[in-house]
Design a protein around this nucleic acid. Structure first.
Lengths: 222, 222
DNA sequence: GTCTATACTTGGATAGAC
DNA sequence: GTCTATCCAAGTATAGAC
């Protein structure tokens, strides 16, 4: 279960600015996240941004830090708590729902897309992606541990692929206001998940948990 | 084989503007694709943009039309010409290489990301994605026809997933200047492809090409 | 069709009063 | 720490000469 962080009213000015920035990124995108637009949305003075953060770019990075850090620790906990592959899949569903509801991935994808326009941002944004790929890798390793796939699956690359896919989904979602297609896709994936785990080779009772060689190596995308 | 369109020097002014727009989208992103930046890059007068296209937004859409239309017809041909699943996979590799070299997907992903800032663009961009999903669906259907997966695979959704993934890859690629990770990912996928097709259930000789029920339904992502 | 000039708007950022 | 006022750069778009 993912514990929703009790989103306090963000008392300090710094916090207010950060929240307003995230909301602006979500609704107006990177191109629309200007100091004036952010100040308008947050109902504070535009000059405060420069007093507290120096520049719009640093503000954007600070906002990305905030949403990433907060969610990352929650999700790490959730992944750590999941015992079985089934539980893990359930947790992943919750993560997706949460991300979507709160628009986190929008912020991320907008920052990534914006990094093309502002190359200075690219390294910083990339660094903030790293822990996510790591977490995804951990989750995959944990989920796959139950099966006989051993070291055949390139987990690291798979983790990268999953994150990639996740970004793409988010990007496309915004085109389609009613999200009909994205929902259909995820409904299909969820329906397919148990089928896939059913097909995966499991070790027979009594076998070692990590057999020297998997019998029928197989991979699953997405 | 994909026939590279002999990119003519783009004689007319309209063409020059369109080419400059695409190049600007590729290198400076959506946020950087302003009338002045485009004119600077193309070496023509900024006012010409408004004379020929009325507004920057329509210019951007016209540019998207141009790159999409040109590539779509080439790729449709390539998919049509591929006879076997192996050939198809080879063609897909070429498509990826071509897209990447010429930066088409960058243009697309930047336009999609930019649609958040300019919602007026969203429906137009979405409409231009449709034929790609269609083409992808065709390719998948053709590729899967050789195997016993019948109607178990939700091809339409899978096509959507593939396009999605493709977008995500492109987005991430730009973060990583040397592209080390993306290349590793694709190298792994390519290495895995024959393995996956080897595992797929094929009809025995003499069986009907489209059996009523697949024996061991299985899906492949990406 | 193309160029120059320009009107108007918005954005980043700073100075200085409070 | 916050607000007002302001500078300057850059953007969209148009008018009008050529």
């Amino acid at each position: 279960m993912i514990k929703k962080s009790s989103r306090q009213p963000a008392s300090t000015t710094r916090d207010q600015i950060l929240e307003a920035t995230l909301e602006t990124l979500r609704t107006d995108g990177f191109a629309g996240a200007t100091s004036r637009a952010i100040a308008r949305r947050g109902g504070f003075n535009q000059a405060l941004i420069f007093y507290h953060f120096g520049s719009v770019d640093s503000l954007l990075l600070a906002a990305l830090d905030r949403t990433s850090g907060e969610r990352l620790s929650r999700y790490e906990q959730a992944v750590r708590d999941a015992a079985t592959a089934e539980e893990l899949i359930a947790v992943l569903g919750e993560i997706y729902a949460d991300d979507r509801e709160r628009g986190h991935m929008t912020v991320v994808s907008q920052m990534i897309a914006g990094s093309v326009a502002r190359p200075e941002l690219a390294p910083a944004v990339l660094a903030r992606m790293e822990p996510w790929i790591e977490l995804c890798e951990q989750a995959l390793r944990k989920g796959l541990a139950e099966f006989e796939v051993g070291d055949v699956v390139p987990v690291r690359e798979l983790a990268y692929a999953v994150v990639t896919f996740y970004l793409g989904v988010n990007l496309l979602t915004h085109l389609d206001a009613d999200r009909a297609r994205t929902d259909a896709l995820f409904a299909r994936l969820e329906a397919l998940a148990p089928l896939a785990t059913g097909v995966m080779p499991r070790p027979r009772a009594g076998d070692d948990a990590t057999p020297p060689r998997a019998r029928r190596p197989r991979t699953r995308g997405t």
